[in-house]
Design a protein around this nucleic acid. Structure first.
Lengths: 201, 201
DNA sequence: ACCTGAACACCGTTCAAGT
DNA sequence: ACCTGAACACCGTTCAAGT
């Protein structure tokens, strides 16, 4: 459903492979918002050929991540039987953040993909969130996480840390993950009173 | 240094005000990456006039935020003498996140401004970080925060939560802040072993 | 001293015409 | 069945010419 058509003409098959290779290189160098025009040019095809294979950026990124996501999700499923549920959750979040660092700006695409059911990245985002929720539940049952922590909290943390990793630095993102997971384990912090001098909207 | 020139010709003064008003409206509606061309058009001036007043997007955003930042930072300074240092830190982080929600995409501009010393937003980012660091130190002295939490951690949290607020949702960003601040208060969480199936880079 | 708007470079996307 | 590339709309940025 999401992979390449079963049988392609020889030239189409070759063009598709070249486009993916050039897109991967461009996304690694310039982030996931690299110019599609340049990708097509470097792949030696016209821009229309790129659109013929991938109707939009999400589809192109999705095709590139498919294999990586397969192994990522397989690893996530294995973690569901790990000895230490708390550590398993930590390992999962770290792996997703590390994965998201493949291309700069992936956090924005994941956020968009999670919100838009028609996005080619939507199923990937849903799976990412589901694995996080499952590992969270297990950690909660083991007493390694507070009862009021929701599955969405893990998804938000993964995405926010992924954003921080490219926007700020890898080390800082890792510290955010560590501190936040510690917060999921311990007691709740201070409340949220509105300051008189803040004027949103 | 950063404000408008002392005396402007009458028409220039009027154009500047119109540009700021239209930019504010556009940034609120379409985010901080709204098209500058459309802003100039709606302000009734040529695009060159916009560039004459503001050499780039950072300068325009910076001029719009100047007043807000003055009150934001004044409030932050007041918090340094608040009764409950832990609550003061929480109030500060919430205020910054709420402030960053003024325009979508401000987190990216803040991250860029913090990294680039030549950015018109750099001093604002530095001040934001400094206040956070000061409030953190005070909270630490009061025993409300662990000793190994750094000032940068607060800055990363503010920015990451600001990103999550526009990219995902306000409530989810608020929960991230609450959980992470709880993590700064309690003991450290689980460590960070690399999974065998993750392959970054 | 300030404004105008054409000019240039760049990008996303579509689609009629080719092979 | 697939590819081409011109075409259109759009945007950021500069700068010579105006007032």
């Amino acid at each position: 459903l999401t992979g390449p058509p079963r049988r392609l003409r020889a030239d189409a098959r070759r063009n598709r492979a070249r486009l993916l290779a050039e897109a991967d290189a461009a996304f690694r160098e310039h982030g996931a918002d690299a110019a599609l025009e340049g990708i097509a040019r470097r792949a030696g095809v016209a821009i229309g050929t790129l659109y013929g294979h991938f109707p939009n950026r999400h589809a192109l990124v999705g095709a590139l991540l498919r294999d990586r996501h397969d192994t990522l999700f397989a690893g996530g499923d294995e973690l569901r039987t790990a000895a230490d549920p708390g550590q398993a959750l930590r390992t999962w979040v770290d792996a997703v953040v590390e994965h998201a660092a493949t291309y700069g700006g992936l956090a924005d695409l994941f956020a968009a993909g999670a919100a838009d059911a028609d996005s080619e990245l939507h199923v990937d985002c849903a799976r990412m969130a589901a694995i996080g929720a499952a590992l969270l539940e297990r950690a909660r049952d083991a007493g390694a996480v507070r009862g009021d922590v929701r599955g969405e909290d893990v998804f938000v943390l993964m995405n926010a840390a992924a954003w921080a990793r490219t926007a700020l630095s890898a080390e800082q993102a890792g510290r955010l993950v560590g501190i936040t997971l510690a917060g999921m384990a311990g007691p709740a912090g201070p409340g949220t009173p509105r300051p008189s001098w803040s004027d949103p909207g």
